[in-house]
Design a protein around this nucleic acid. Sequence first.
DNA 1: CGTGCATCTGACAACGTTGTCCAGGCTCTA
DNA 2: TAGAGCCTGGACAACGTTGTCAGATGCACG
Lengths: 362, 362
Amino acid sequence: MAETARTPVSRPRADGSPSDGTADAKSRYGNRPTMKDVAARAGVGLKTVSRVVNGEPGVTPDTERRVQEAIDALGFRRNDSARVLRKGRTASIGLVLEDLADPFYGPLSRAVEEVARAHGALLINGSSAEDPDREQELVLALCARRVDGLVVIPAGDDHRYLEPEIAAGVATVFVDRPPGRIDADVVLSDSFGGARDGVAHLIAHGHRRIGFIGDQPRIHTAIERLRGYRAAMADAGIDVDESWVSLGPTDPERVRRAAESMLTGPAPVTAVFAGNNRVTVTVVRVLAALPRPVALVGFDDIELADLLSPGVTVVAQDAAQLGRTAAERLFRQLDGASDAPERIELPTRLITRGSGELAPAD
Amino acid sequence: MAETARTPVSRPRADGSPSDGTADAKSRYGNRPTMKDVAARAGVGLKTVSRVVNGEPGVTPDTERRVQEAIDALGFRRNDSARVLRKGRTASIGLVLEDLADPFYGPLSRAVEEVARAHGALLINGSSAEDPDREQELVLALCARRVDGLVVIPAGDDHRYLEPEIAAGVATVFVDRPPGRIDADVVLSDSFGGARDGVAHLIAHGHRRIGFIGDQPRIHTAIERLRGYRAAMADAGIDVDESWVSLGPTDPERVRRAAESMLTGPAPVTAVFAGNNRVTVTVVRVLAALPRPVALVGFDDIELADLLSPGVTVVAQDAAQLGRTAAERLFRQLDGASDAPERIELPTRLITRGSGELAPAD
DNA sequence: CGTGCATCTGACAACGTTGTCCAGGCTCTA
DNA sequence: TAGAGCCTGGACAACGTTGTCAGATGCACG
């Protein structure tokens, strides 16, 4: 019965099956036992097995025992794909972020996972590598899997492609950066305020020529932090020389060149504000090689920052809290709350460790 | 948090079934269009839609266009659950690791994801939090989802529970630590050799009283690294005083106590070998607060280790390479290779930065 | 001993997709 | 112009599960 004896087809293989299986799914690798098999072995009906597996009431202890034995004997494991198909909920959520290898996203992802776990859901992870097409591809693949919800750290700036999905009931929360051209829940850190405070801190320590090195201008946080920088400078009545400002990719080479460029010339900066953790790490390296001290404040905390000399002063955001907040919001949506989309902004925290308190060298 | 009393304005639907569908799945939230709907709208048969969606041949350009229009108009997206049910392959793999927030696992996870992506598969992630029960729960949940394969960083030491799954065709590769009581592919770093080399390096710089602080003894890498430590000491003819050795959880408190304990007393150690990245970070902090220099070599590289003074000498393992190798091995299994289970051991690399080259203080 | 009721149980039809197979319509040759 | 083949399209059954509903069983009670 396992192999449905098919008539040996003598027809020429003109029929265009691309490259996949020749037969029905039955022929796939390990044939796993199904509820039907369990039912047959236990001598009960299919539905009774289903009841036992799902802990539904209405099964005699004796029957239940027989079914359980059959389950153990056959090594049966419920096929969740079929279950999903029938029930319409997958108990899984998707998380699309930029790069799981970035120390900022690890804790965020873990926090989302914990909340998901508390709600009995699994987490499917994907890295967009900061590529809008890849983001969309990932998100839609997740939707095809019918994840119940999505947490997205957007790479692109147009998320209208998500509209049909959201309309179809996929809960969606954006994190770290707002979505583009659609209205949806979003959880952010206060990039503007954090950067403004960080730069004001440098100004308070006597700096006036302050550099800003940030991420690419299409990234919302980069723009916001730059805005914070400009606000702090304006508040202090300082004119910003545009040679002090550099936005672009955060690879070490680009950042190094940007830093070196604003540290040389006729009016070199005496302090640098680094726009994120990647930038900070590279700037620390550049400054460490300099003969004179240059002040530094970085956005995002980094491990061991306290042990460097001087310690790195940072505007810290809580990645785990971002993830947790977003995930909780997501499950609130899934639990039926129909609040209007909201923008939640988490505060940042200035941690002084020395590098931000250095006086100007000149 | 304040229970934000939201405007109860217009309830979207009174029909909102409290928590459980009273009817068939039809009544679940957003009713998505199916191929049937698309077919009806395009005025073609169901299978024709399927053909278009899957890019199968045998559809007139004109028909294809009509179908495509209907797809776009309805916002149709194929339901992969149904597809999986029919085809038997999910094009997704599971990764169970200890803690995604640990900087060692981020790059590993990312590497696995990249390989999966190259094979058209998605990655489902789970953190075991070093708890064997949770590991098993996660693994079995992934199996119920019918992932095609599993990459597991084991927390437990008995994986016989996986036997039926492997027999049923779930490709499985263990990483970082070998599985317990079953035979399966495993990709490891050379913990023994790496630790031996690191300790030998300290000995070569004149140390004889060397401490070892490692992870819990039920963790394979902890044991292996301790074995490497003992081998190096034995090679040099040094008797190990057991007060120099400490295994246990890697939380900062425990590690700090362990370090302080072996750094005080009548015969304090003059060097420490730290068993992994978590331990290294804490030991660096402890040593930084000491008046006298103590040498340190750590297992695992850590970010900014080069900028500390002294720089931290480490035995580096390549987490991304571990992940990549394991994932490639996994997909080789999935492509039908039926090699015998293999144990792959990747070399480590000693990176000298200063802390391991300090001479004994006494 | 028969009836009523509560409890268990199982047959059946979905869920949305894909593999198989056949029916038409078409082109091309003899 | 008829027959043979090819191309296109669609009907149908299966994948493994769960919701519905009706049948079977047992028990208490009149």
